[in-house]
Each structure stands twice: as structure tokens, then as C-alpha cells.
Design a protein around this nucleic acid. Structure first.
Lengths: 254, 254
DNA sequence: CAGTGGTCTAGACCACAAC
DNA sequence: TTGTGGTCTAGACCACTGA
């Protein structure tokens, strides 16, 4: 039951923050002061602060101190679980989102990631087409989402799917209208995981912020998976919201 | 551009794991060996390993070594976005889940958490009823979900809502059938965040595993929020899946 | 019960950004 | 410019657990 010193100190700091002793935006005592007041080494104080950092509670800023992070305000995304269409092609969010590609799509051939391969129906490490896009706010240029599409090589090799510009309608229109693989069907899975350092860097995520992740598979009518889209975004900036309707079994009991 | 030593070592170890040099379940070289082979201090080697631990890639086990964690296999939950009903009351997952309460519900009065209070329509820190349940597998007794309900004090004080046993149908039937607040309406928001140490301990989460979170609000017909339910589960053990249907605007283009 | 990771220290120097 | 967090070391001892 004897917690290590850095954990006890972390617990005290956490309690102080939650009590309001250190409001959002304020700074904790500096590491040396923490070390002195708890009679521990500076390194140990830093481990305590790192604990809070991992929880997303504080963010150390050089030359300034350990800043208490504001309570996250999450932008609510709507997944109507329907696919819509306009002149630009399919989209999956009924509230048309204003994000744009911050960079031209990075198109490359590479090994299928371990978690994507089984969905795509290929062996892990097998070469696939990778279309990587960084989406963000058109005004602030701040990145919001990392969207990566994976397509089997035998399907995409030598086609316009492997070009940077897939034209209006994107890969789904290519697959459906020009390659005869439609009508497409889609399935989405929503989950969370920690970012890799590269993902954290590209999305400018501080430590202690997980990814929210939507993995969408596009299938032809025979059930063959044609594409897997892996979209990652800050778990602190976004959430998915939806109303609940009543099934007939749950008719009002009034 | 000069990354610190622990990051460079972490990157090399990560690459080695992804290359397959250390398969799932195998152990990395021990800290002293890592330290020697990269000519760094043991503490620095440990920081490198901690980096991988935060990503959920490895889990240090005493006396054994740093074990490479298996790729997560996520149990897919279905949220039909409909509420169903059987003789036991309302439930929100059409695939009736086999989880049971591992402990009697912990019912207490306490301050409304900062992120719950605005949803509940009370001031942060204002006293509310807190009903805390730990759900888990009935056979293995392993915890799977942490479900906490918050109810405004003025609503719950002195009622059966504040008792451990709310009877068949639970609080929703009490609110609807006996207290006349129905018919209830619900809204869910799905998100992710890092666990607190207490949450991590109760769900037996290793570091580097975020929470998947469903926050459900129950509202009366006037729009007053009667209850907020905050359900947290391992982001590594669960995901939410759903098929996509076509909106009329997206009629098949074949 | 021994060997692994876990914790802790004192001290040094680095590097970045706010002042 | 300089003060803050960031990194790193050498060494010591602890504590848990699986061989």
C-alpha cells in the first residue's frame, strides 16, 4: 500500500488542481519548488508531473512552467450512419464539414499495417496502395484529422486510384463509375488508441491525448473489401453524438 | 532536429518490434543490456521503454522483462441508436451483453464532476447523487466497464433513486413509471480520454490504453436533463461498429 | 529467492521560448 | 537573455514475482 513518492506527489497535485487551487491556464510551482516542498529530488518531482501530463491534465511549457490544461471542449461530429452525395461525391457526415486537405495527398506503395491487413484481405506487410491525407481548418491551417486509405495492389496498380488527383468524386467514384466495382457498401468501426509519435506530431497533440479513430471499409456487392479508410483525430477535440430513438419494444410506458 | 537519446532508442526499438524482431509475447533486452548496447544510462534506457509503454506497445513485467503486447483484438459493440426493452427494463445494445455488476452499486452523494455538471444543469461541485457500478464478465469476473450515473439532488433526494437496489427496471423505470418524468428521451456522445489512476486500476488497464467513453443523457419531454450516465471501457478491448446505409441522395450510381 | 524492473538521489548541463 | 523544463549519468537500493 506504500505508493512511491512520485505517485503520492502526483496525487496531491491532482487533488489540488481538482480543488481549484490551480485554475485552468495557471502554472504549478516549478519543479525545484515541488521538489523542496515535498523533500524529493527534482527528477522525482518531474516524474510526478509527467504522471499528470499523461492524464492530459497539465502541459509543461518551457520557460513558463507546468500549465494546467483547460477542460477539453469537444466538437461534436454527427455520424448519421448514412452516406450522402453531392456533386463532389460521397460524404459520410450530414453536417458538411469545412475541412480541407492541408497538403496534397501523399500517395505511395508500402506494406499493409498489421491492423489493416486482415480487414483488407491481404497479408500483413504485403504491398498496398497508401493514400495519406492531412485534413484541417481552411482558415487557421490547423490540422484536425489524419485520413489514410489503403487499397489492394492488384486493384489499384496502374489505375487512376494510384494518382495524386483522383478527380471529382475521388476513389469511390472511380471504383463505382469507371471500374465497375459498385454499388459500394460501407461499414464503420469507431475506437480509440494512443497515437504514434508521428501521428502526435502531425496532429500537434500534447501527451496524454488519445486518438479517436474511425475505420471504414468499402466493399463490393460480393463482400470483397476494396478499400480501408483509417481516420484519426484528437480525442480531446472531437466526439461523436447521436440521438436515441425508441424501438417498438420500448414504446413509451406512460 | 537532434532528438534526445531516449527518443532515438525508443524509435529503434519500435522499428525492431514492427519489423518483427520481437514478436508478440517476446521480451525486449533487459534495461541494462539496452543501456550497454546504446551506451546510455539504465535510467535513459528506461525512459525509452516508457515511451513505448505509453503507446501501448509494450508492458514491463517484473522479473520477466519488457513484454511486447499482442495486437489488440477489439470486441465489437453495436449501438443501434435505439433503446430496447424487455422485462428487466430498458437497454441500449441490441445484442444483449452478458455483463453483470461485479459489486453492489456504490451509491453516494458527492460533487458533480466538472465535465458532467454542465450536462446535468448543475454547478460544478454541486452535490449530486452518484451511482457507481463496475460491470464485468460473469465467469471470469474480469471488469469490463465502469458505469457511473449522476442525478440532480433535488430530483433524487429521499427517493428510491438513492437506494442501492432500485428494483427491476432500474432508475429509468423509477423515473418514468413512479415519478412521472417520462417519457424519457436519450442522447449519447462517444469519445475518448485517458483514464485517471483510479479508473486504470479498477479496469486493470496497463499504461498506454485510453478509455472509450459513452456519455448518455436522459431528458424529460420538456428537455430537462434528469440523469447523465458516463460509461468507460478499455479502448483496447472494445470498439463500436455499424453499417452505413444510403441516403436517397446517394442512390446507387450503377 | 534471485533477478528483473521500479524508484530515488545529487548533480550537471542542455535548449528553448518568454520576457 | 535567462529561467524554465528537459535530458542524462552513476550509483544505490527497493520490491515484486516467476523461474
Amino acid at each position: 500500500m506504500n505508493a512511491p513518492a512520485y505517485r503520492r506527489v502526483a496525487a496531491e497535485l491532482r487533488a489540488a488542481i481538482e480543488r481549484g487551487d490551480y485554475p485552468e491556464g495557471s502554472v504549478l510551482p516549478k519543479l525545484e519548488e515541488i521538489a523542496q516542498s515535498y523533500s524529493i529530488a527534482k527528477q522525482t518531482a518531474r516524474e510526478a508531473v509527467a504522471e499528470l501530463e499523461q492524464e492530459g491534465l497539465v502541459e509543461p511549457v518551457r520557460r513558463r512552467g507546468t500549465v494546467v490544461r483547460p477542460a477539453p471542449v469537444r466538437q461534436r461530429l454527427v455520424r448519421a450512419r448514412q452516406v450522402f452525395r453531392d456533386e463532389r461525391g460521397y460524404y459520410f457526415d450530414p453536417a458538411a464539414q469545412p475541412w480541407v486537405a492541408l497538403e496534397p495527398p501523399a500517395v505511395s506503395w508500402g506494406p499493409a499495417p498489421r491492423d489493416i491487413a486482415p480487414l483488407l484481405g491481404v497479408h500483413p506487410g504485403e504491398e498496398v496502395l497508401i493514400r495519406d491525407r492531412l485534413m484541417g481548418d481552411p482558415n487557421t491551417r490547423r490540422p484536425t484529422q489524419l485520413a489514410t486509405s489503403y487499397l489492394p495492389a492488384h486493384l489499384a496498380r496502374g489505375t487512376r486510384l494510384a494518382e495524386a488527383d483522383t478527380g471529382p468524386g475521388g476513389i469511390y467514384d472511380l471504383l463505382e463509375l469507371q471500374m465497375g466495382h459498385g454499388p459500394l457498401e460501407w461499414f464503420e468501426a469507431l475506437g480509440a488508441r494512443m497515437p504514434s509519435p508521428r501521428e502526435a506530431e502531425r496532429l500537434a497533440l500534447p501527451r496524454g491525448v488519445p486518438l479517436l479513430r474511425v475505420v471504414r471499409t468499402a466493399t463490393n456487392p460480393a463482400g470483397t473489401v476494396l478499400e480501408v479508410n483509417d481516420t484519426r483525430m484528437s480525442g480531446e477535440a472531437f466526439e461523436f453524438g447521436y440521438p436515441i430513438t425508441r424501438h417498438p419494444s420500448a414504446a413509451s410506458q406512460q
